[in-house]
Structure formats: structure tokens, C-alpha cells
Design a protein around this nucleic acid. Structure first.
Lengths: 232, 232
DNA sequence: ATTTACACGTGAAAC
DNA sequence: TGTTTCACGTGTAAA
């Protein structure tokens, strides 16, 4: 059990200035102009080596880690906070998003290739759905309830109730896709003529009202200018 | 300049066992059964709070950081080393690789879509969604699971799992509407890229296989004649 | 024996 | 105020 050498405070705190959180990045502290050789005592060879060498290695390790983390943050487009933990978290979310998108794109490519390789004369198949007179984008979304509830842990619960019409489901899907939210899970349940939509969304609790407003305006935009305003 | 309290060695080194690099992950140390209250001296209130509270927060911070790093490592397929720095570096390389691949795939899709537009197919469809590079009515329903289970009381439980694509929800809704079933309730849940559809349907138990066949043929019809047969 | 990587406690700074 | 996040030096353990 070594007795602690008292060089800590004099060694680190005086220099380096600790500049921590200057504006946007946490210091990324360069200029390690430490003269550790200024140990006042005549230390033994093993002690001085063990101290000055390990202390230097540790500094380099931390520096490298911070540089990597900094480089990682530079790659991620949507950055919420500058925390180390948040940076990693954003990177995780971004990788998942990229992976999903890759799967989607590859599926699209396969399907497009199939369409290209096949005979260019099959006009009949996609028209199965239009048999219900649709004019798909006309019936407005009739909103019955809209709640946005913070659930803690940066999660908002969005609960929507509306009457079920032929294209309401499609519209809701498009609506939420257009909002570019971080949807954790989405649930859509229809019983008789009513439609219940529940979403868990990753967002700060303070965005609650803003999110509700976004959804309302999006619904209004989908319904078009001629529809009467819906108050809940 | 505070005089160092000598609680460091007795506080940390005795417990915790420091298990460091057990096999594959660096400890991810649980069980912090430290009773820091065993400080032998009657410390002042400010000192004890500053010590025990900050020390706990710092442990939680480190723990969270390590968990995030662990989660990040789980997402990256090609892992070279288990270092913290290497984990971040691998994640960086992986993100760059994914970004390049995304650009390549999107270029391929554009090219394929241009080829498709030369075909005399339907240009008159409402192309509202093509802003997201997804062609609206073409992606087939990719069935992952289909179960029809009799629940008694003249009720059949239909459980469907498929990959979520831009128009899969719409297709499933229209599909079940076209089957003219007596739907008691329907539930549709999407988590990440998968889509779970559950329906309670009023029908005789003997129609179980027939209903399953109906659904399969309906999906095949929706997917069109050129799609490969899907076996479940 | 040397190097490398880690968790730890700690004081400081920012919020 | 207190809470959170950080860099630092240090001891330990494995390579």
C-alpha cells in the first residue's frame, strides 16, 4: 500500500486551467505542458517512473478517448446534448436508424428490379385497391381525443382517438412519418368505428405542448383548408 | 486547498473486487454494496454530503457511460478490440460505411425508378409519397408469420407478423376489408421495422384453415404474380 | 519488469 | 441552493 504522494494538487490544478466546457466542446484539452520533473523531492527511480509514466499514459488515453468521442459526434446529424453519454446514445439511435433505412432501401431495390425485369404490361394489379371509390385523400380525419403525456425517461405517450374511415389509417401513418419523430413503438387499434392510436415517442418532456401542437397542425394540414376547426 | 481525506483507499479498494476484464466485457460492475457511512470520524455535514453524494453520482455516471458504450458495441458488427477507444472507433467506421452504403443504394433506387418511369405504367397515381423515395403501391407484403387460432365462442384469433414498409399498413387494412370478415377488434402494432397485426374474428372454428388460406391468397394477390412464393 | 486499460475517489466548473 | 459532468491522479490487474 503506497503512501500517496502529495504531488496531485500541485501537479494538475495549477496548470491546464481545466477549461472544461468552453462553448460547445468539453475542452478537448490540448497543451499538456506539464513539467512533472518539478517534483521537489528526490524520489526513488521506481516511484518517479511509476508516477510520471503512468500519469502520462493515462492522459494520452483520456485524450484519445475524447478525440474518438468527438469524431463520433461529428458523424451524427441529430445531436441532442453534448454529454458523453448523450453522444453515445445519439450515435446508437443513429446507427439503428441507418440500419433500418438500409433494410428498407434494399427491399425497395429488390422490388424495383423485379418490376423492371418483368413484363412492362401488367397494369392490372395495383388497381385492386381503388375499387372502393376512394379518391383517397378527401375524407378528413375526425379527431375525438388527443393527449400527450410525459412518461419519464424522455418518453412521451401520444394517444389519439378518431373515427375510423377508409383512409384514416393511411393518413395517420403518413402524418407521423412526416413529423420525423423518434417513434419507439406505435400501436393502432380499431374497434367498431373508432380508431385508437398510441405512440411512444422519444423526446424531452418539455416538448409536450409543442408536439401536441405539431400533431394538431399536421392533422389540420391533412384535412385541408376547408374543414372546420376541431377543438378538443 | 482542502486537505485530502484518507478515506479513499479504505473506501474503494476493499470492496468491489475490481473484477475488471472478465472474459469479454469490462466488468460492467453491478453490486455497489458500499456502506460509505462507515467513515470513522465525525465528519461535518457539508463534507459528508459532498463526499457520499458526489461519489454516488459519479459511480452512476460511469455506470451509465459504460452501459451506453456496451450498447453501442452491440450494434456494430465488426469489432476489432474490446477497448473503449476501439469500440468508438469501430462505431465510427461502421457509421461511415453505412452512410456510404446509403448513398449508393439511393443512387441505385433513383436509377431504377427512372427506368421504371419509362415504362407505360401508371403515371397518374397520386405520387404524394415519392418524396421519401418510396414508390407507393409496389412494395410487397413480406409475411413473417401467420397464425389462425380458435379461441372458442366462435372466435378466431388471427396473428400476422410482417416487415413494416411504407404502405404495408394500408394494404393490410384494405386486405381485411376486402375479405368481408366479421372483425370484432383489430390491433396493429409496429415496433422498429416489424409490424404485428392481431384480429379477433367472429367465425366458426372449422373455418380456421380456410381463413388462413384466404389470407394467404389475398396477400399473394396483393403482392402480384411476380413475387416469389412465401412459405411460413 | 513494462505496458496497457480500467475503475475509483476527488475538486472544480457549469447548469 | 444542489445537481451534473468533467479531468485528473492513482492503484490494480492483466497482457
Amino acid at each position: 500500500m503506497l503512501v500517496r504522494s502529495t504531488t496531485k494538487i500541485s501537479g494538475s490544478q495549477t496548470m491546464c486551467l481545466k477549461t472544461k466546457n468552453i462553448g460547445s466542446s468539453w475542452a478537448m484539452d490540448e497543451l499538456y505542458d506539464n513539467d512533472c520533473s518539478s517534483s521537489p523531492d528526490g524520489a526513488t527511480a521506481s516511484a518517479s517512473l511509476s508516477n510520471s509514466n503512468n500519469i502520462l499514459s493515462e492522459r494520452n488515453r483520456r485524450k484519445k478517448l475524447n478525440q474518438r468521442l468527438f469524431a463520433l459526434r461529428a458523424l451524427v446529424p441529430n445531436i441532442t446534448k453534448m454529454d458523453k453519454a448523450s453522444i453515445i446514445k445519439d450515435a446508437i439511435d443513429y446507427i439503428q436508424q441507418l440500419q433500418e433505412q438500409e433494410a428498407t432501401l434494399q427491399a425497395d431495390i429488390m422490388e424495383l428490379e423485379n418490376n423492371n425485369n418483368n413484363n412492362p404490361k401488367n397494369h392490372d394489379l395495383p388497381m385492386l385497391l381503388t375499387s372502393k371509390n376512394t379518391s383517397v385523400f378527401d375524407s378528413p380525419i375526425q379527431l375525438l381525443q388527443l393527449n400527450v403525456t410525459p412518461m419519464g425517461d424522455n418518453t412521451l405517450l401520444v394517444s389519439i382517438t378518431c373515427t375510423k374511415r377508409a383512409d384514416t389509417v393511411l393518413k395517420l401513418c403518413q402524418l407521423f412519418e412526416s413529423l420525423n419523430l423518434k417513434i419507439i413503438t406505435a400501436n393502432l387499434t380499431v374497434v367498431s368505428a373508432n380508431l385508437f392510436n398510441t405512440l411512444f415517442i422519444r423526446a424531452d418532456e418539455k416538448e409536450k405542448e409543442e408536439l401536441k401542437m405539431q400533431i394538431q397542425t399536421a392533422i389540420a394540414a391533412f384535412n385541408g383548408p376547408q374543414t372546420p376547426p376541431i377543438t378538443i
